[in-house]
């Protein structure tokens, strides 16, 4: 691999300064970046190692009831934090359904948000890819694309965002805290990732040198703890990205859905929240007909980007499943096969 500078700043301010130069990249655990570098997909001239920055590895409850998760908290530590599992069970389930145990032990919260697509044409440097080389074209468009996007894609890019973690997070209004040269700002997680449009290489709203320092779940996110699930269909039971996934979270009172949250994974360049579906569910009785209506609404704008029309059908069925399971109530423990359709199923 190419030679690069490696710096390990002592403070966030130093890190931002070091990462503000052209060609610099932040390095946390590197579970994605190092693979990209080895494959020649990413060739940063400087790595700014943030893993030893102080104060970013804490999970803390703030005065307003929200939960602040430092960007360097490891995926596994968060997923096994008892209070976290109790209050945000769908997020824990999503985390545990991602990657492998070894990767979860290494991967950080901030890194998970910023992982790159798994589109094979993005990884294959012999292929044309508008993300890697703006204007080069997209070989996925007429290529092997059975797992590509069905929502929000453009002729320039049909890649999907692969994170499981992000799917329930956008459903629960998570916010990212960002430090940059000009100080701190906040962004709803839903606004962090961009749809490809005519600039697929411009993947997030982060400016050069900006660093995600924390993720925040608002106090209201806990209101869904009793009725929240994440369901993921994948091509093997672990260490596989979602073909399609869905996070459903309901607030049920007096037998009716007072408030609903729904987001899909594996369908678009960003975790895909469906407010249309949420509105259809709010105030309704928890029943299958309404779930199907919500599913149709969530996928109303979908169209195949290739050999993947089945994902539109599958996504609707997963929405129905996730809502049904959420309505039944969050299991006392995260299933042995987290997010698997085989983790539980209503009696026949």
């Amino acid at each position: 691999m190419m030679n690069f500078d490696y710096v390990r700043p002592a403070s966030v301010a130093d890190a931002i300064a070091a990462a503000s130069e052209k060609g610099a990249a932040y390095l946390a655990s590197g579970t994605n970046l190092l693979d990209l570098m080895k494959g020649g997909v990413s060739r940063p001239s400087r790595l700014v190692d943030v893993t030893r920055l102080p104060g970013l590895d804490r999970i803390e409850r703030l005065a307003d009831g929200s939960l602040r998760i430092g960007a360097l908290v490891r995926n596994a530590d968060l997923a096994h934090d008892a209070e976290f599992v109790r209050n945000y069970p769908a997020v824990a389930e999503a985390l545990l359904s991602g990657a492998s145990a070894q990767l979860r032990n290494a991967a950080t919260v901030g890194g998970n948000l910023l992982q790159r697509t798994r589109c094979a044409y993005f990884y294959d440097i012999g292929s044309a890819c508008n993300k890697r080389w703006p204007g080069a074209g997209c070989d996925a468009l007429d290529g092997e694309n059975r797992l590509h996007a069905v929502l929000g894609w453009s002729e320039g890019c049909i890649a999907t965002h692969p994170s499981d973690f992000c799917v329930p997070l956008v459903a629960l209004d998570a916010v990212v805290e960002i430090e940059g040269k000009d100080g701190r700002r906040e962004l709803p997680l839903e606004a962090l990732h961009r749809l490809p449009g005519d600039a697929p290489a411009h993947e997030t709203e982060l400016e050069r040198g900006e660093l995600i320092v924390a993720l925040r779940l608002p106090a209201a996110a806990q209101n869904f703890a009793a009725h929240a699930r994440y369901i993921k269909v994948r091509e093997r039971t672990s260490y596989a990205f979602a073909v399609v996934s869905a996070a459903a979270a309901l607030r049920i009172e007096d037998g009716a859905i007072r408030e609903a949250r729904l987001a899909l994974g594996g369908v678009a360049a960003k975790p895909w929240r469906s407010r249309e579906a949420e509105q259809l569910l709010a105030g309704a009785a928890p029943d299958a007909a309404r779930y199907r209506e919500a599913a149709r609404a969530a996928l109303a704008g979908a169209k195949p980007s290739g050999d993947n029309a089945f994902k539109i059908e599958l996504a609707q069925r997963i929405v129905v499943r996730a809502l049904s399971l959420a309505a039944q109530g969050t299991p006392a423990r995260v299933a042995a096969l987290p997010a698997s359709p085989f983790s539980s199923l209503p009696g026949a």
């Binding site: 094979a120 044409y121 294959d124 012999g126 292929s127 070989d139 007429d142 290529g143 092997e144």
Partner: peptide
């Protein structure tokens, strides 16, 4: 093994 039907490159 998934092969691009145009280039013959293995994608996975």
């Amino acid at each position: 093994a998934v092969m691009d039907h145009r280039s013959g490159r293995i994608l996975n």
